[in-house]
Design a protein around this nucleic acid. Structure first.
Lengths: 258, 258
DNA sequence: GTTGGCGTAGTACAGCGTACGAGGAACTTA
DNA sequence: TAAGTTCCTCGTACGCTGTACTACGCCAAC
């Protein structure tokens, strides 16, 4: 992710040798955190501090300096617990995934209910940690991510699908959930930024051009009131569940045609 | 987005005065691009150069220096066409939205077909410009974004829904499309990075713990083969359309109960 | 009591966005 | 044609970033 002074110390890879096998640097999950003497912090502490900064000030505000500062430690101290910032982010993400995992025993036996449970937890966690979409997808599987996948498999197990169908089904629900959460986060950020008057001016000018008859109709003449109505609509509950329901309806109709 | 030396020249806002109204800085869409003398570049040139860098090297590689360099210009020259990097990004996004807009006259009269057309264009554009999710949602409406919304309204117009229902329907399809595109981008990036052996080691160790019986079963013993099969499955076409179909099935069942 | 390694602070460096303002080019006016 | 004016280009500099590196103090283990 951050390759600022690209791959230091790697040197000129000695040709021929299958060095790649030998020089694998283990993932953070393989390396015990410092505990032999008397470490002042734990990885969990560090991850929590980073989460707090990200939650309240945004992902970009998470810097090694800021995290260390919040812990009352020197910047470089963090590098004793974590190899680089990427690993810190890995910890942060796995922490969020922990919130996505449904507590043991609570997962329903009914596939629709179970998928809905997981979906709601995912949505809530992503909404609470709105920065999650920025670093995600850089390939950092963690223990809690695996637990989440295990639960997804458990949820759809009653349907008795084959592997491809299973994967497709879970993926499609994830697609909807991710998209909803992403767009919800975007909307909320936009709402928190407030609606700058320039934007409204821009809309008005564009609409005045007559090129958008349906948008014009959609907002019903009064743009300000229309915007407010849309914002109000976005804030009303149930939208997420209704969309998920429709998707699950479509899935159910396919698997159990009446 | 970039507030590095925060709000220069704004000064100590003179209390009392409703200065906020007067000091609105117009959006880029309101400001003509330089054309009076003999400008060496155009906003379109600049946006294209930035797109090319982002497409091939990633969004983080787009810097004012790099864009200027690609154009054979001095860095600060860009600031004549664009007020800051945020505006450049705004141009980039609107350029992508231009690809999302269905060419005039091609939009179907059937709502399902029309929504599918739009969805496919969106997916294709987002896949081609995989960086799009990083800057999106910072509140930058543009002309092409508006055209896209107009088309979405046009697509569902035949259903004769009220405003809330219309907005909800469009939003739900967008949720799915965004989520699919986002996850597709993430998967592709992961695939391009290759599957580092440490990740496989991690999976193996976790699975060996016995805590994930369903994942174990899912991969069927041979983790390498299982991974390959999943990657192969992800690459096969039709997955997007099948998911969209299921969602539209659910929607159709709700609006036209047989 | 000694010592080796852990934890820390400080420094250095490359790259970022962009404020400032000098300088040249091109059009307008006299 | 000459001067004035405006547009356009871009070198320099500043404060920010992540992080590698160095030097040093402290404390647990021998």
């Amino acid at each position: 992710m951050y390759e600022m002074s690209g791959e230091p110390g790697r040197g000129e890879d000695r040709a021929g040798e299958q060095a790649a096998v030998a020089e694998v640097e283990p993932l953070i999950w393989f390396r015990q955190e410092p505990a032999s003497r008397r470490p002042s912090h734990t990885r969990a502490d560090i991850a929590r501090a980073a989460l707090e900064i990200a939650d309240s000030e945004g992902f970009d505000s998470v810097s090694m300096r800021r995290v260390a500062e919040r812990l009352g430690a020197g910047t470089m101290t963090l590098y004793h617990y974590v190899r680089n910032k990427d690993e810190l982010i890995t910890l942060m993400i796995d922490q969020v995934m922990a919130e996505v995992v449904v507590p043991a025993g609570e997962l329903s036996d009914d596939w629709r209910t179970a998928l809905t449970q997981i979906a709601n937890r995912t949505r809530d966690a992503f909404a609470a940690h709105h920065w999650i979409f920025e670093p995600m997808g850089d390939g950092r599987p963690g223990p809690n991510g695996m637990r989440h996948f295990e639960q997804s498999l458990q949820a759809v197990a009653p349907l008795g699908l084959d592997r491809d169908q299973t994967f497709e089904l879970i993926g499609q629900v994830d697609d909807y959930v991710f998209g909803y959460a992403l767009r919800e986060v975007q909307e909320r950020e936009e709402h928190e930024r407030g609606r700058p008057p320039e934007v409204l001016d821009f809309f008005k000018r564009e609409l005045a051009s007559g090129a958008y008859p349906l948008i014009d109709d959609f907002f019903g003449g009064d743009l300000d009131a229309g915007f407010d109505a849309v914002v109000d609509f976005l804030g009303r509950p149930g939208r997420f569940d209704r969309g998920l329901s429709r998707l699950l309806d479509g899935i159910e109709a396919e698997f159990s045609p009446k």
